[in-house]
Nucleic acid binder design. Structure first.
Lengths: 274, 274
DNA sequence: AGGCAGCCACAACATAGGTTAATCGGCCCG
DNA sequence: CGGGCCGATTAACCTATGTTGTGGCTGCCT
């Protein structure tokens, strides 16, 4: 792991982009975010950023590259819980738990920022809007895990696989990692199997079916989606759960609209006692 | 749905108990929480508190009874994502999303409190410690879903079932809903099947196996766990993921310890500019 | 150049779990 | 008292997916 200077500290990082879809960030908020991402490391592929069972220290922010979050059973069976992409946060709350219940492992060379857990308190105290945006993006991540649970519980192998491909296509296109229909999937079939709760052989069969039907093409790590529409329909993909819509900015409203009802009264009453 | 007076407003509610395991609440915080739980409804069994696809309004706090959070595919296949127990929050962030990606349905008569979404902004602005505790408990819930994902992906039917029973035993005992080894499971086999990604017939077979081996007993809705140890071992249950340990109070530390390093300096610099 | 390791591919066979269907008991309701 | 419905239970059968094993390709090390 090599430490690198924070060259893009004040530019727009993936995290900044993500949070911007929830609210319009002020200059101070932007600066504070930049400060959080000041300490940057580069990590090679196949390296654990976090190990199940271990006590975890720093909070990390993914800036570049791919990683997986996974859990293992004592006998070695493994489940990939989610893919970690740029802008995602690693171990935000793990630092507060006594030990991590999952591992995070890099798939590609990765650039991550880290900050000490005490910053979390600071963040909640001094930057409530940022805190809310982070909490909200945590909820979005939970929604993704819940959707994968639906896949494993109720979708067939073909549906699951199609669904995952469309999900990745959507998530990657937000961070500009898709160019017309194809993207790099730095993932072995074993990892796909572990993500979809299938055996490696069966993933192979299933990919073959998808290729034979012309919905996708695979060359090495590059996957091309020829017909998103149909692939989405095979996977019963409904993008509701990704909560991508930027327009509403409801969090903004929650912050600006609440000043003077009933609730705010209660609010100030209590604070004045403090 | 009938509205009821908030008889226990200032007593300790399940939510209060839960958050207390993360930090020591001040009087103002306790009062504010009580205020959030002021508006109380009673809801009969088999009622949707929240419907997938619907625009969601109020945030709800479960005070009494059981519910399930579930997602459905267009063709009717259904997955139960989690069980909602007293102290759990419903739709905290759904109010901020454009529409809900899951449903919540009561299993028993239920008592819920509700508050308008604007309170979320207020909460983050004025009660950062409460906000952090809520975010943290959200993370704990995600951990439960991730563990269930591991079950569906990598555990056999027998293991999954055993695992779920132990999980419920643990979660229920926190809220005093277990008396020596037995508890009420207000759940049909169909719901169990939907929670475990199995067919109803196979759940039946699996429960029979568990009964035959003497690990559990079932009479109506009452389930008795005869040998938790062995049941936990069958299910490869490791309670790490429930993050139940109350001792550490790390959140407390994150709030009290951060005042004067490096980070706090940055903090005040920025704030003075505002 | 040879050999080893990791990954993909595919065939042949095995099985966990799904499906269909029938029975039974409890409960509600007229 | 007699339906009728819902949920549990079980049997018989079926299929989606897992397992085992083989071979081939590529890249890397020596």
């Amino acid at each position: 792991m090599t430490r690198a200077p924070a060259s893009r500290a004040l530019e727009s990082t993936p995290l900044w982009l993500k949070l911007s879809s929830y609210l319009v960030l002020s200059d101070e908020e932007k600066m504070y975010l930049a400060d959080l991402e000041r300490t940057i490391d580069r990590v090679p592929p196949r390296t654990d950023l976090l190990q199940q069972g271990e006590r975890y220290r720093d909070v990390r922010v993914m800036r570049e590259g791919w990683a997986i979050r996974h859990k293992a059973l004592p006998d070695g069976r493994r489940q990939v819980v989610n893919f970690v992409l740029p802008g995602d946060i690693i171990g935000m709350y793990c630092t507060l738990f006594e030990s991590a219940d999952h591992s995070v492992t890099t798939l590609t060379p990765v650039e991550v920022a880290s900050f000490p857990p005490e910053k979390i308190g600071e963040l909640f105290r001094s930057f409530p809007r940022l805190a809310a945006a982070l909490a909200w993006s945590g909820a979005r991540e939970e929604a993704i895990v819940a959707e994968r649970l639906l896949s494993l519980g109720r979708r067939t192998a073909l549906e699951r696989t199609a669904h995952l491909i469309v999900e990745l296509l959507r998530r990657l296109s937000i961070v500009n990692m898709v160019t017309d229909g194809h993207f790099v999937l730095p993932v072995t079939q074993e990892i796909l199997a572990d993500a979809l709760g299938l055996s490696i052989v069966h993933i192979n069969r299933t990919l073959r079916r998808l290729r034979d039907s012309g919905l996708i093409e695979l060359n090495g790590q590059r996957i091309t989606v020829n017909d998103v529409r149909q692939l989405a329909s095979v996977g019963q993909f409904d993008e509701l759960y990704l909560h991508l819509i930027r327009a509403p900015r409801r969090l903004e409203r929650a912050f600006s609209g609440a000043h003077h009802h009933n609730g705010a009264k209660m609010d100030s009453e209590i604070r004045s006692k403090a």
